[in-house]
């Protein structure tokens, strides 16, 4: 393959990564924005979503699409409920103190991960995609007869990957509408701006916190359900999405939702492109250091506004 088609392939793969990442990071960003706490166990919500998707699809016989739809409906619900329960049982009792919340969510991380190891086991397990046609992509090139279309060998994408991109975009639009156009969104924004005043106006801040924590985890789980037909479910798979989501949320500006989406596209695409052309470990080292430097020298994020 020549450079052009190769790049197109890298961009498409990057878009798939970016789609999943934007859902996961959106969950983390929402929780940080509204509750002002960092949820270190966020990656485990992703992992639980994938493992539950594997479990649910295994329960249903028949066409893989039936199991997939069922998984997409139930896995985020279960994970969200678990997260809301842990908010009630643990975080609420810590009064959302930032330091102690981080320590407690590290604990939750190990609990979720190790319980999965005990029940699901150490093996990676695949989930069958609901549909998976290979779509060859055309490429335009100048030949002796002028510009012609042709299909380079290896330049293709599956219909499922295209579906992932479309589904993620639809979910993000839905979140945007919920936050800006509904009463529930209004309550969230009010709590985000000033939780004490919101409380004084009769908003059940405690409930809002639990719901937001649940939604944040459910978004990660939904991302995982989408990714699990491409990438297998494994009990240690939560680490990478956690780190990448951190990076995205920091670059996008802590708590800024549009910033999060833009940063997810940036990171997802560059991750796809970088890993096609460079050594992945070196790319990760550079990326991690760069993000740490962003946090050191521009704590409000690349797109966030400085806090006064």
């Amino acid at each position: 393959m020549e450079f052009g088609p190769h790049l197109l392939l890298a961009v498409l793969e990057g878009l798939v990564t970016a789609s999943i990442l934007s859902l996961t990071a959106m969950g983390l960003s929402l929780v940080f924005g509204v509750m002002r706490v960092v949820n270190v166990a966020h990656g485990e919500a992703f992992m639980l979503g994938a493992v539950l998707a594997w479990w649910v699809t295994g329960l249903v016989a028949g066409h893989p699409a039936v199991g997939f739809v069922l998984a997409a409906l139930t896995a985020p619900l279960i994970v969200g409920a678990l997260a809301a329960a842990s908010d009630r049982l643990v975080l609420k009792r810590l009064n959302y103190d930032p330091d102690r919340t981080i320590v407690a969510t590290i604990g939750l991380l190990y609990i979720a991960q190790q319980t999965t190891l005990m029940t699901f086991g150490p093996d990676a397990r695949p989930v069958e995609p609901p549909f998976n046609q290979r779509i060859a992509l055309p490429w335009l090139e100048r030949t002796e007869e002028g510009w012609t279309w042709f299909y380079p060998w290896g330049l293709s994408i599956t219909s499922y990957k295209l579906f992932v991109i479309a589904a993620a975009a639809a979910i993000l639009v839905a979140i945007w509408l919920v936050i800006t156009r509904t009463r529930a969104g209004l309550l969230m924004r009010a709590t985000q701006q000033d939780s004490e005043t919101a409380q004084a106006f009769g908003i059940p801040v405690g409930t809002v916190y639990s719901v937001v924590f649940g939604i944040g985890a459910a978004l990660a789980a939904l991302g995982a359900v989408l990714v699990v037909p491409i990438q297998q479910a494994h009990y240690l798979m939560g680490g990478e999405p956690l780190l990448l989501s951190f990076i995205v949320v920091i670059i996008g500006g802590l708590g800024s939702l549009p910033g999060t989406v833009i940063a997810a596209l940036l990171i997802g695409l560059s991750d796809g492109i970088i890993s096609v052309f460079f050594s992945p470990t070196l790319a990760k080292i550079i990326a991690t250091l760069l993000v740490a430097m962003v946090l050191v020298f521009r704590p409000q994020g690349l797109l966030g506004k400085a806090q006064t």
Binding site: L94, I106, G107, L108, L109, Y110, Q113, Q114, T115, M118
Partner: peptide, 20 residues
């Protein structure tokens, strides 16, 4: 058990909750 890190998780949560 293989999942001995579970103890670490439970200990962290209990410590932050009850004995900071």
């Amino acid at each position: 058990t293989l999942a001995y890190l579970l103890i670490v998780g439970v200990a962290l949560v209990l410590l932050t909750l009850f004995a900071p």
